[in-house]
Write a protein that binds this DNA or RNA. Structure first.
Lengths: 201, 201
DNA sequence: ACAAAAACATACTTACTAGTATGTTTTGAT
DNA sequence: ATCAAAACATACTAGTAAGTATGTTTTTGT
């Protein structure tokens, strides 16, 4: 196999496996050894492709975590250009949270987990995570602006603040839900209040 | 000094110092040695009073973290029996978040941090943290019920769901704020959207 | 005063993990 | 075919941290 292709494949394998492990066990509770041995690789391979664990962490955020938000939360906004704003807002959050597997509900949100575990330990992480939140907020704010333009949403609504409010609640609930192994009462209450909130906009 | 008094004092010193360290550096990044050496004590003293680190963690949650929520978020609800519900709701969250020092804003919320760091690693932690959230939610729901009774709040509002929604947003924002070292734009946006939300109830 | 138990100290073990030094195999350009 | 560099392996270092074993000091009930 060509070297550059092989290199890319190995890097991707490491980043993908790292994301899985980080999500399930946390960044600090995942050693380089467990990641590489899962892939039948060794430390030598890892440190050939990555400078250190921090670089791996940043790569996982920039690629895997960002992709998860892009695919799951941002892309759907643009995939439904004809759906009324409020309806789409409800769809986005309600369907998303209901689509999670029991494991994902118990494990919480990867972005949020990373924010709390290493989000304020290094500027590198901070900026990578901030970038994800801000793109998400921006996309939502655009949708809200569209709703205002179409007179579906009240003119005095601040779109950026509302976007942040929606994201915060979503992340907050996913955190609290981690305490309720297998019990969805929290999620159902969230959906109730969320629909009421969106109606009020 | 009497033994039981001395024992209580030492235990309290350890729990208090542990809370400080856990809040600032996290549970996993705080060693027993740093806690005890801060107090001019040794491992021997610690393991005489606590079975293990897990017991210390649970005690910190049950005492320090719970007390923080009780004092900062729950007690004020009952200290203002004559304030209209919506006004009090705004006061509770807005004044609270504005009262935090720059350090506290950067460090986030202790409950939330614990939830994310060890909240789903052990049933002991899970229950202790759940208890805090549920007492908080219950107190807020009571206030909302009172508002409904007084016709300040719409009758179709679900008080438990709304209480959870308020808590979730607060915790979510405090998480995201951790990415914005010293920048309060997030908090200002939160306040804007929060006031709008409470008005809509 | 004294024996026992509580309170605390010292020294050690064990386990884990990030990172390094160095060696071997594979790939690619000439 | 061959030499250099990339890709990966092996073995090691060093630091950290939870927990234990055991010793010393202080308190307490009699």
């Amino acid at each position: 196999m060509k070297q550059d292709v092989k290199s890319e494949i190995t890097k991707n394998l490491i980043v993908t496996k790292a994301f899985e492990r980080f999500y399930q066990y946390g960044f600090n509770n995942t050693s380089i050894d467990t990641i590489t041995s899962d892939l039948k690789l060794t430390k030598g391979a890892f440190y050939h492709h990555f400078k250190n664990k921090k670089e791996l962490g940043a790569t996982v955020i920039q690629q895997k975590i960002k992709d998860r938000i892009l695919t799951g939360m941002i892309a759907p906004i643009y995939n439904h250009p004809d759906t009324p704003s409020k309806e789409l807002l409800k769809l986005l959050f309600v369907e998303r949270i209901q689509s999670f597997s029991s494991i994902e509900k118990n494990l919480g949100c990867p972005v949020n987990n990373f924010i709390h575990e290493i989000g304020n330990t290094d500027v590198l992480y901070q900026n990578a995570l901030k970038n994800i939140i801000e793109e998400w907020q921006h996309a939502l704010a655009e949708l809200i602006e569209k709703g205002k333009f179409n007179k579906e949403i009240k003119q005095n609504i601040n779109s950026n603040a509302t976007a942040l409010y929606l994201i915060s609640t979503f992340e907050g609930v996913r955190g609290i839900r981690k305490l309720y192994n297998g019990n969805d009462i929290i999620i159902n209450q969230y959906i109730l209040a969320l629909e009421n909130y969106i109606d009020s906009l």
